[in-house]
């Protein structure tokens, strides 16, 4: 079943420095099935974050359609959860209240949303940090909170915008493994934006390669799960797929 459909999506905006209109996204069409995990990879300036911002409803699109379960989206909404590169946790709320924010907005009573928040914190191995404030946590822990905060709201689709780009390399690998584990347990529909080819292949069922605002190619990733780096780093299929995607990204 199709959850998300992008039909000839385009974005043109006026660049005051260039003094002219710039097209960031030309003509992107993409289908995402329910429970699928799709990575969108491309060099910086390829339009990948612009696409995510349009799907999230943060910026309007200038052409084409964005359909969620067959209905056109307008503005941001809780059915599209977002994980931000900058984490975007509320500094004045405890970890528990950050994760319980979505349920609170739905009108879930305090006791019930605390139960939901605790459940998701346990999923991310963060139960001990429930009553701490975001600034007391490491970057990796903050982004774990960011991920489960979005998941706790039960979104139809989870939009992740280079979420692990600002944590150190070791933490990033751990977070990637945890994400694949959580995805297997909960099966959310995920669109994952990244410029890191290995990350895109490691996480996804399908990698969409983007270049200059257009879809260059889509690559199926039929690697078995659960995926762990210690196995995949030596895996021939993983190496071949990564190399294939990398060549496309670099030649683009």
């Amino acid at each position: 079943m199709k959850t998300l459909e992008l039909r000839n999506l385009a974005k043109t905006y006026f660049d005051p420095y260039a003094g002219s209109h710039v097209t960031a996204v030309h003509d992107v069409s993409l289908d995402v099935q329910q429970g699928d995990f799709v990575s969108v990879v491309g060099p910086s300036g390829c339009g990948k974050t612009t696409i995510l911002n349009m799907v999230a409803g943060f910026i309007p699109h200038s052409g084409g359609e964005i359909l969620l379960n067959g209905k056109a989206i307008s503005g941001p909404g809780p059915e599209r959860g977002v994980v931000f590169q900058s984490f975007a946790l509320f500094p004045w709320k405890t970890v528990l209240d950050n994760v319980g924010f979505g349920p609170k907005m739905r009108g879930v009573p305090k006791a019930e949303r605390d139960r939901i928040a605790h459940e998701y914190l346990e999923l991310a191995g963060l139960s001990h940090a429930a009553n701490r404030y975001p600034n007391e946590l490491s970057g990796g822990m903050q982004q774990r909170v960011g991920v489960v905060r979005a998941l706790a709201n039960n979104p139809e689709v989870l939009l992740m915008d280079e979420p692990f780009a600002s944590v150190d390399a070791q933490t990033r690998m751990t977070l990637q493994e945890e994400l694949t584990r959580i995805w297997q347990e909960r099966r959310p529909t995920v669109i994952f934006i990244t410029h890191d080819v290995a990350e895109a292949v490691f996480l996804a069922n399908r990698v969409v390669v983007l270049s200059k605002g257009r879809v260059l190619d889509e690559v199926e990733v039929a690697l078995p799960r659960p995926r762990v780096w210690d196995d995949l780093i030596e895996d021939e299929t993983f190496k071949r797929l990564s190399a294939h995607v990398l060549h496309m990204v670099r030649s683009a």
Partner: peptide, 20 residues
């Protein structure tokens, strides 16, 4: 991004005011 985060978690105008 904090305002966007709140909006994408379902915050309306009033919640945006009081919560963010």
């Amino acid at each position: 991004t904090l305002r966007n985060a709140a909006a994408s978690l379902g915050a309306g105008r009033w919640a945006l005011l009081t919560e963010v």
